[in-house]
Amino acid sequence: MSARRLVSLVLAAASCAACSPIQSALDPQSPQAESLHELFWLFVVVCSVVWLAVMASLTLALLRNRSTASEATAAGSRTPALAVGAAVVATVLIVAGLTIASFLATRSLATDGGGLVIKLRGYQWWWEATYPAEGVVTANEIHLPVGRPVRMELSAADVIHSFWVPQLQGKLDLIPGRDNAVTITVTKEGVYRGQCAEFCGLQHAHMGLIVVAEPPAAFDAWARAQAAVAAAPTEPEAQAGAALFQAKACSSCHAIRGTAASAKVGPDLTHVASRRSIAADVLPATRGAFAAWIVDPQTIKPGANMPAIALEPAELRALSAYMTALK
């Protein structure tokens, strides 16, 4: 690598450190992520010190002159004590590190209730979020009130997934047939991104989750709006789309509360246009993206369980207008 390239790399890294990341464990925004962050730096410091000590002794050993035979015997007699000492130090370091790690892990996994419960269920390749008390069912985007502990109850429908929002907590698996739970308290407003962190199949990399932390009042307003049934579309094009949604294959997998569509195979689309993204944070929730996704999901996310449905251009326009109207 040339010196200039090295310099530009370092500069790029420095500028990245300055920007506010949307998905970074080095920017903790909850006590749970904070303790992992502390642990990370503790490990970095301890491992750096150990590494430096090893490198220093290696350098010393390399630089020292080949000694005479008598010196070698003398050094040999000292070796057992040194080795035993090093082993004891290493053991103490490792045990101490593991103790701290397990203490912090237990704390971050503590599942004492905080009133708000979110059931997060992993599917290939999207997330279903249910707020039982609020009556909200949504997908791929969850909202949390700032400062209130939220108990996330994790389950999976098909294979093992893993819930990981680096700024908010460590990874925890979603396992079919086993319910895991983790409590998060977000301390700062913002939009965070999560990601499935356990390889779960073809589109594992495209299984994103948006987490919106907002003040309690805004959260309550959001929850009320999400709990409502879908508003009937007013524009003629969107009305045609609503009829098509019921007549075509859409309604055999998706639910829109307030209509006859109530299938639970794919994401609930009751308020799909109120979300920031569709297809598990692959596309923005715009009309063009809706149309692109409906007409050819297998090019955007090959292997996804959404089939392409044969549609006339006018039908596609009507359906995308309807999706955009589902605020």
Binding site: A247, K248, A249, S252, P307, A308, I309, A310
Partner: peptide, 10 residues
């Protein structure tokens, strides 16, 4: 009938 509920490949 599943004619309207699934595309032919499904």
């Amino acid at each position: 009938p599943y004619r309207q509920k699934l595309p032919p490949d499904s």
